[in-house]
Structure formats: structure tokens, C-alpha cells
Design a protein around this nucleic acid. Structure first.
Length: 276
DNA sequence: ATGCCGTGGAAACCACGA
């Protein structure tokens, strides 16, 4: 599949070909384009899930992404939300543009594709603040439908990754100061329980699976020098179907990107899968 | 703990994010 050097990354040890899958909440794809292109050229992921495009369908920078070596599927929206899947391989096919049972959702928060033989779901789960209130209700409703969609995927026994901005801090290890976030929608028991339902189904929280005790963050607020203080949250996740767990070789956060000029408040997160 | 920052879109401010 990713047999050429342009596709897969050659591992340092035994020339085993690996596939790198990343997720990145860009917070505005057009305003972020220089940062996105620099990160793509430096790290060369095979598949990329993007969230918060904040651009209507017709304003997606298709040519720039193509020039960077990627095929793309996207679901835009004026001003808010918006998700995309990029692939170095041309073997990418659209499967869903919304979560099953949530086709009437007016927000562009989900896109799913088959990239060669791996199903890739890219999601931007609602924030849910302030809570309680309609926005929190919307988050939990969206989550519930997503959990059902994820369960159906597992039953199909298709190798899959569900990557994106879940807007959930799964545990106290995933936040710099848990007591400050107790009443926040990202850390509310209902949100964490919903995330746990996914892992209870069998989905593997890739980075936590490989690094069970590390403090790992994927988001740092723009103000109060949150990045300099490492006052971060881990809210961007790549969930792997169980049949892919044996191929999971590494995972990480490109946190240096958060230190660049005109950067997103999120950093890219990635996993590497062995080809077989 | 918070919108102090940042983005997009419209209109020279506002909605929204986490």
C-alpha cells in the first residue's frame, strides 16, 4: 500500500515500513496554512485528520494541500467547525459525512473515509460549555450517537482509527491542574464516562496505551503563557480498533509546533502502525 | 477560575472556543 519511499516512513531499525496517522485541530485552516504546510513537510504523515477548518466548503485550500502531496476529503462550514482527511495515497474513498443517526446535525463535525484497507473517522466533538445547559446537552447527545456509530464499526470488524478533538480530558493525568477543571464540560463525569464507554467497547487510546504513566498534553491555552508553563490538556485522541493494536509501534505529540509563530492552540498528535 | 488570545465574518464589533 504505502510501498514507495514517498508514502511510508522507513523505520530506523529494520527497514520495516510504518504508516503514520496524525490528528491536528488547526483552528482555521487558511489562517494556519503556513504552519500546517511546514508541519506536513517536516513530519510527512501518511494520513492526517484535521479539525476546526473554519472555512466554507469552497474555501478549502485544495491546491496548496495537493501541492504538498496530499489527496483530501473535507466537510467545510462557514466560520465554525469543519473537518478533513488528507492522504498521501490516492486510495481514499468517502464513507460518511456525519455520524450515523446524526445526519441532521447542522455542524460539520465528522467525516469518515476508507484509506486503502483502514477506516479513518475524523471527529470534532462539541465543547459543551457552559454547563449545564443546551450546549452540554448537545455534547452528550452527539457523544451518544458517536458511541453507537463506533460500536457498529467494531461489529463490522474493519480495522479502524477514530481520530480527532474529543474535547474530553479522560483522567486526572491528562490535565495540569485537575481541581481547576472539575466543573468544566471537558472534565465533567458525564464526558469522561462517555469516553470510557468507547474504551470499554475495545477502542484503544493509542498514546495512553503506549505511555500509561506519562503526562502528555495536546492543547495549551493561548493566554496566560499556558504553553510556557506547560499548563496543558490531553483532549486530542487516536482510538484504535483492537485488531490494529498489534501494529501500534509508536505514538507522540509534535509539541514543538505549538511553539511556532501564528500557531494553533492544539499540537498535532500521531501514531505509527507497522505495515503488517 | 478566568476569554487576559486568536479566528472568522461582518462591519470597525461580535460570536465562539476550552
Amino acid at each position: 500500500m504505502f510501498e514507495t519511499v514517498n508514502f511510508g516512513r522507513l523505520a530506523k531499525c529494520n527497514h520495516e515500513i510504518r504508516m503514520k496517522i496524525a490528528t491536528y485541530n488547526v483552528n482555521g485552516i487558511n489562517g494556519r496554512l503556513p504552519v500546517l504546510l511546514k508541519w506536513l513537510s517536516e513530519t510527512g504523515p501518511d494520513i492526517v485528520c484535521l479539525q476546526e477548518l473554519k472555512a466554507p466548503q469552497e474555501n478549502f485550500p485544495e491546491q496548496a494541500i495537493k501541492d504538498a502531496g496530499y489527496h483530501a476529503l473535507w466537510k467545510g462550514q462557514k466560520s465554525w467547525n469543519g473537518v478533513a482527511i488528507l492522504s498521501r495515497s490516492a486510495d481514499i474513498r468517502l464513507v460518511h459525512e456525519s455520524v450515523s443517526g446524526n445526519e441532521e446535525d447542522e455542524n460539520s463535525r465528522y467525516i469518515e473515509a476508507l484509506v486503502h484497507d483502514i477506516r479513518v473517522g475524523c471527529l470534532y466533538l462539541p465543547n459543551g460549555n457552559p454547563n449545564p445547559g443546551p450546549k452540554f446537552d448537545y455534547k452528550l447527545d452527539w457523544f451518544e450517537k458517536f458511541i453507537k456509530h463506533a460500536e457498529a464499526l467494531l461489529k463490522e470488524k474493519i480495522p479502524a482509527v477514530l481520530a480527532g478533538d474529543y474535547n474530553v480530558i479522560p483522567t486526572e493525568l491528562d490535565v495540569y491542574k485537575p481541581e481547576n477543571w472539575k466543573t468544566d464540560a471537558l472534565f465533567r463525569p458525564e464526558s469522561r464516562a462517555a469516553f470510557k464507554q468507547l474504551t470499554d467497547q475495545g477502542w484503544i487510546d493509542s498514546i495512553r496505551h503506549l505511555y500509561p504513566d506519562e503526562r502528555i498534553y495536546t492543547y495549551w491555552d493561548y493566554f496566560r503563557k499556558a504553553y510556557d508553563r506547560n499548563a496543558g490538556l490531553r483532549i486530542d485522541h487516536l482510538l484504535l480498533s483492537p485488531d490494529l493494536s498489534g501494529r501500534l509501534k509508536d505514538a507522540g505529540v509534535d509539541r514543538q509546533v505549538r511553539g511556532w509563530e501564528k500557531t494553533s492552540d492544539h499540537a498535532p498528535v500521531w501514531i505509527e502502525l507497522a505495515d503488517r
